[in-house]
Simulated scan of single mutants.
Amino acid sequence: MHVFVTGATGFIGAAVAADLLAAGHSVTGLARSAEKAKALAETGAEVLMGNVNDLDLLARTCGKIDAVAHLAFNHDFTRFKENCEDDRKVIHAMGQTLVGTGKPMVVTSGIPAAPGRASVETDSHPGSDVMPRAASEEAAHEALAAGANMGIIRLPQVHDTAHFGLITFFAQVARQKGFVGYAGDGSNLWPATHVSDAARVYRLALERAAPGAVYHAAAEAGVPAIEVSEALAKGMGLPVRALDDAEVEGYFGPLTHFSRFNILASSDWTREVLGWQPTGPGLLEDLRRIEDFA
């Protein structure tokens, strides 16, 4: 299978490309710079120079491949809603090209909260007017309704010893502030998975190619924020303390909304249908061995 991977030079996208190549598939990866293109080519992938917002380029490329893994996303949280709407346009452009072809495409989203219980794969996000990231799922559902073979992979905090999803940005704040802070009593939960396990979900989903399937790539159902903060502080050599409500926004800035995430995630169905068994280290283990923020 020849797979087009957007975000192929990013943290998770690079792992997805590597996993696909190791499984015997071929990969065309999107790259924006000569430096990143060189690194991608050295893995054995074909390189497509361009930008994820070049919708004509994306559509043309979808006509030449067998499957698509869409991971590219702009993580500038000062314009989060705009970035989510840009992603809607990207998914629409590729999805419309794939209508009627049967070629599978998986898009990336986040795991929704389900107050009082674990979130499962059949749970829906609130609309994008409430949760901007839902724009990606809305675009995927629109393409599915038009006849494209679309799937959705919902990611938790994806990590190794240098990257930790949103926690990476919290670490940057902690370095600036001189301490690791967390909102309230720190009992809110963060599902997580190692990057190698997340990458395998993308490959297995594309190989299964089930239209309309939604997968939760959560190896750990929920890690308490206080434990995440303590492990991060230990890894960075910083103090840690709770923030009261009046301090949270001043500390986290545009990340304030994310700091209060409280999600317990089930991946039971994903494990069953894909035969997915996570094997990577846990989030706290990787945080204690942190590389880039000490």
Rank of each mutant, 00 (worst) to 15 (best):
residue 1 M to T: 07
residue 2 H to S: 09
residue 5 V to D: 01
residue 5 V to E: 00
residue 9 T to D: 03
residue 9 T to S: 11
residue 11 F to A: 02
residue 16 V to F: 11
residue 18 A to Q: 15
residue 34 A to Q: 13
residue 34 A to P: 11
residue 41 A to L: 09
residue 43 T to N: 06
residue 44 G to L: 09
residue 47 V to E: 04
residue 48 L to Y: 10
residue 51 N to F: 10
residue 52 V to P: 01
residue 55 L to I: 07
residue 60 R to A: 15
residue 62 C to F: 09
residue 63 G to P: 05
residue 64 K to E: 13
residue 67 A to F: 02
residue 80 F to W: 10
residue 81 K to S: 08
residue 86 D to V: 02
residue 89 K to L: 14
residue 91 I to A: 11
residue 91 I to H: 01
residue 91 I to W: 04
residue 101 T to V: 01
residue 102 G to V: 06
residue 112 P to Q: 07
residue 119 S to K: 07
residue 122 T to R: 13
residue 123 D to F: 10
residue 129 D to M: 09
residue 132 P to H: 06
residue 133 R to A: 14
residue 155 L to C: 02
residue 156 P to G: 06
residue 166 L to C: 00
residue 168 T to W: 00
residue 169 F to T: 00
residue 171 A to L: 02
residue 175 R to Q: 14
residue 183 A to N: 09
residue 184 G to E: 03
residue 184 G to M: 00
residue 186 G to L: 03
residue 192 A to V: 06
residue 192 A to S: 15
residue 197 D to L: 06
residue 200 R to D: 15
residue 207 E to Y: 00
residue 213 A to S: 14
residue 215 Y to N: 12
residue 217 A to V: 10
residue 221 A to E: 14
residue 223 V to G: 03
residue 226 I to V: 15
residue 232 L to K: 04
residue 234 K to H: 14
residue 237 G to A: 02
residue 239 P to R: 08
residue 245 D to R: 10
residue 251 Y to W: 10
residue 255 L to V: 07
residue 256 T to K: 13
residue 267 S to C: 09
residue 270 T to H: 08
residue 271 R to T: 08
residue 271 R to M: 07
residue 277 Q to L: 08
residue 279 T to C: 09
residue 283 L to K: 01
residue 289 R to I: 01
